[in-house]
Nucleic acid binder design. Structure first.
Length: 521
DNA sequence: GGACGGTGAAACTTCAGGTTGCCTC
DNA sequence: GAAGTTTCACCGTCC
């Protein structure tokens, strides 16, 4: 249903006017934009024009405080979000730390926050409806063509957030922004009255096909090329494109690769195919066989090269799985390149020539690995954001991917009997998970101890589990807090009760000192 | 005369997002 | 290609 809506045009910014109108109606709004920066900037523009009062203001003040201190140390992004939240607006995108994302979502659901400016993250897999949905951007940067219109399906996904049936509201509004009459007509034609795109099969994309071909062989569902073709002939891809010739060609080529990489082997008569032990593991790990082979090749080089933490970090950074990589600015290109030269003796991947298409990606992989190296040397999120322009949420996403690839590398190293590397990778994974230096590894084995508490303990001369056993419970409580102290002691086999540690008011104002009262069994 | 702050134009950057594994000293 | 951010020159104000 199309409807005419009158909104007071107080400012030149249409989004702002519509949002203010929504607030006047005591309703909530979602604003969809095409980039993280835009989401932040739009939320700031709105926040600047809204002044909450009374109870609302108090609740938002508290919320702002919570958002600000969600991380170890507030980043520039945290401060920006906290400032917006004070006015009842927020931004939401994949660069937000998961804790903050959750806070924003929950606060919008319970009505504390009135406006969220978001990238498409919010439209998918998240039930967060609002009275009004404002779709500000209908174009998005998509290389190599530049700005291009978003799919109709995505537009519908946005609009689907309008109206809150769960709250017994049977009405909602979705609004697009057009600057001219022509633009308005185009939007009506393409998005409002238009048909959504057909759904296309992605099966013919090689990395996906490679993975499926190997897995069908590994689980012994297919043991010949005929069986494979029979299987793929029944897929949506074959149904959609009618002829399977192209598919047959690709499968043939893939079987060739898989054999070269020693993931499959043929029977003597060349009719039956089966997965090797290595191939089975690759399939279980859900690895793209291409990546698996790349990792193995790199690690073999590791037997003759110098091994550093950087070696493995760069190895996983240069996989397809980790893309898109951190971008290298013109002003920092030289610096990254010189780091690359300096570290070349410990880099396991093959450096492309400067004229290779992939050279830029390679330089980016160096920067990405440098960021991870900083992380495991306890650089905080604020500094990472400044130095690498990577947001806390993106940090987590990259680290999770790197961990998965390192785990896979470790498993492949086991099968390939590369003993020397296994331990190094395992250590690196723990450091990557916590963002901690090697000296903290013994303490990180404890539950509820991450980089922050481990570092605090280390500074207080508690360096391993023996020290944890020996340390006076009161002292430990002073470092990590009472509850955690009891928990940690329990983990090293010492049972303490709450009454064993008493809190005594210190002499200095605002300071508490804890004293041991008695020792556990 | 110098420190400081506000302003605006030009130069420079950057551009959505998600799934996969597991027991381990 | 467009929006957002950073940089820098310029100007006025205050001490």
């Amino acid at each position: 249903m199309k409807k005419t809506l009158q909104v007071e045009m107080k400012y030149a910014n249409s989004v702002l006017n519509i949002v203010l109108d929504t607030l006047k109606l005591k309703k909530q709004a979602l604003v969809f934009v095409n980039s993280k920066n835009s989401a932040e900037a739009e939320a700031e523009r709105i926040a600047a024009k809204v002044k909450p009062e009374g109870e609302d203001a108090l609740a938002l003040e508290a919320l702002s405080e919570k958002v600000l201190n969600a991380l170890e140390k507030p980043t520039k992004q945290c401060k920006r979000l906290a400032l917006c939240v004070k006015s009842g607006a927020a931004f939401h995108h994949a660069g937000l730390h998961s804790k903050q994302r959750e806070i924003v979502e929950d606060s919008f659901r319970n009505g504390t926050l009135k406006v969220i400016c978001a990238t498409p993250t919010l439209a998918y897999g998240l039930n967060l409806p609002a009275f009004r949905v404002i779709v500000r951007d209908l174009k998005r940067f998509a290389p190599p063509r530049g700005m291009s219109p978003i799919p109709v399906l995505e537009f519908l996904q946005f609009c689907g957030r309008a109206g809150r049936p769960d709250f017994n509201e049977d009405y909602g509004e979705a609004i697009c922004i057009a600057e001219t009459d022509t633009e308005k007509e185009n939007i009506m034609e393409r998005y409002v009255d238009g048909e959504p795109e057909d759904i296309l099969s992605k099966l013919a994309v090689e990395p996906i096909l490679r993975t499926y071909v190997l897995s069908l062989i590994a689980i012994e569902y297919c043991n010949s090329e005929e069986r494979l073709m029979e299987f793929f002939g029944k897929t949506f891809y074959a149904h959609q494109f009618q002829n399977t010739e192209r598919l047959e060609e690709i499968i043939d080529r893939i079987l060739g690769y898989l054999e070269d990489w020693e993931f499959i082997e043929w029977s003597e008569d060349g009719k039956k195919v089966s997965a090797t032990l290595l191939g089975q593991r690759v399939s279980q790990l859900y690895l793209d066989p291409y990546t698996a082979n790349y990792l193995i090749t790199c690690m073999k080089r590791g037997e003759v090269k110098m091994i550093r933490d950087f070696s493995f970090l760069q190895m996983v950074s240069y996989t397809l799985e980790l893309r898109p990589l951190l971008t290298v600015r013109a002003s920092e290109y030289e610096r990254i390149e010189s780091e690359m030269v300096e570290k070349s003796s410990c880099i396991l991947s093959m450096e492309p020539t400067m004229y290779d298409d992939d050279y830029d990606e390679y330089v980016k992989s160096i920067k990405t690995a440098l960021f991870m190296l900083d992380w495991i040397n306890e650089v905080d999120e604020e500094t990472l954001l400044e130095a690498y322009n990577i947001r806390p949420g993106e940090v987590r996403a990259k680290l999770d991917l790197a961990d998965w690839l390192l785990y896979s590398s470790e498993e492949l190293a086991k099968l390939a009997k590369m003993q020397g590397l296994i331990k190094e990778i395992a250590k690196l994974r723990v450091r990557l998970k916590h963002g901690a230096k090697e000296e903290l590894l013994p303490l990180l084995k404890l539950k509820n101890v991450g980089r922050v508490r481990a570092r605090k303990m280390y500074q207080n001369k508690i360096k391993d589990l023996e020290d944890v056993k020996k340390i006076d419970p009161g002292m430990l409580a002073e470092i990590v807090g009472k509850a955690i102290a009891i928990d940690i002691k329990k983990q090293v086999g010492i049972e303490l009760r709450d009454s064993h540690i008493i809190v005594k008011k210190g002499t200095r104002k605002g300071q508490m000192s804890l004293h041991k009262y008695g020792k556990g069994k």
